[in-house]
């Protein structure tokens, strides 16, 4: 089921890094970013053409700002696209995204090295 979803995504977004067997990821977070886009698409938050256009804009913007465009930054653009669409579609504002980002940072700081990092309400206290 999930590979069917992915096949639709890779067909719609030809730029997704892949080999003969499908998409490949350089790090776990890239797969998370990929999976989130698949899920939001499933939920009807955006269409693939809409996603492709937003991603292309993001890459164009990054290149204008000096992105080396070697493929290594592909999922960074993917993530920025995800954040942009989430904000634009009213799912969560940029301010909310930043607040959660800071909370996770706080959670990492108070978690001893090697323990699983979990978000707690007090992490939002700032």
């Amino acid at each position: 089921m999930s590979t069917t979803l992915a096949a639709a995504a890779t067909a719609a977004i030809p730029s997704i890094p892949r080999d003969d067997d499908g998409p490949v990821f350089r790090a776990p977070w890239e797969a998370h970013a990929f999976a989130m886009a698949l899920t939001l698409h499933e939920r009807g938050v955006f269409t693939w053409p809409e996603w492709a256009a937003a991603l292309a804009d993001e890459i164009k913007r990054a290149q204008a700002a000096g992105d080396p465009d070697t493929g290594e930054t592909y999922y960074l653009h993917w993530l920025a696209t995800l954040e942009g669409l989430v904000a634009r579609k009213g799912v969560a504002s940029m301010a909310t995204l930043h607040r959660y980002r800071d909370a996770w940072d706080h959670a990492a700081d108070r978690t001893p090295h090697g323990k699983p990092i979990e978000l707690r309400p007090e992490d939002f206290a700032g």
Binding site: T96, Y100, A108
Partner: peptide, 18 residues
């Protein structure tokens, strides 16, 4: 203590919100 990269923080933030 633990460290998360800037990118990992953003990914976790999104995942939590969603």
């Amino acid at each position: 203590h633990s460290e998360l990269s800037e990118t990992e923080l953003r990914v976790r933030a999104l995942e939590t919100i969603l």
